[in-house]
Amino acid sequence: MSSVLEAPGSRLGWVGVPPEVLERVRPGIVRVRGRGPAGAGGVVWRRDAVVTNHHVVAGARQALRVVCVDGRAHAARVVETSRRLDLALLEVPGADLAPAPIGRSARLRVGELVFAVGHPWGQPWVVTAGVVSGIGTVPVPGRAEPGSYIRSDVHLAPGNSGGPLLDARGEVVGLNAMVIGGDLAIAIPSDVVRRWLGTEP
């Protein structure tokens, strides 16, 4: 199951993501499994905590598991969610996970290379590649400063939610959340996750 992670699966596949770029981040990416069949992605924030999307854990609070790339599975529970930011923090009691390298999304530039790792349509550990298409902003109720989100042209499908958007260094710069119009991928910036949790990873 883990070997797929070495096989980039999109139109930039021919560029080749150097294996060591993925190798560095790979232990920090998990699959979140609830009652549904497809599962979703998640990013290891601390040794016993994983960040994913709110919408993938909504309604499945009792029976969550996080599965590491080596196949180990751990029981997890939701400790905090934000419907507005579409973020959820899962606690994985007693686990000793490997935190993912978290990058600074504020540094992203339009046109730079990004990679998504997820489980589209339930296919595990699929890597797709593209570029940052734009940085969008949305007004946030009750705050002067607008919220931001990352737009990219990486191929996403159901099962990519909550999985990481990586930069060329293999650092997590966002959490993939949704697709607009069939081909515009939306990710929640890593800096937004950082602010929401109020902590560095």
Binding site: R11, L12, V110, G111, L113, G130, V131, V132, S133, G134, I135, G136, R151, D153
Partner: peptide, 9 residues
């Protein structure tokens, strides 16, 4: 006015 980009060949 926002610049956007996508990549291919």
């Amino acid at each position: 006015r926002e610049l956007m980009a996508s990549i291919g060949i």
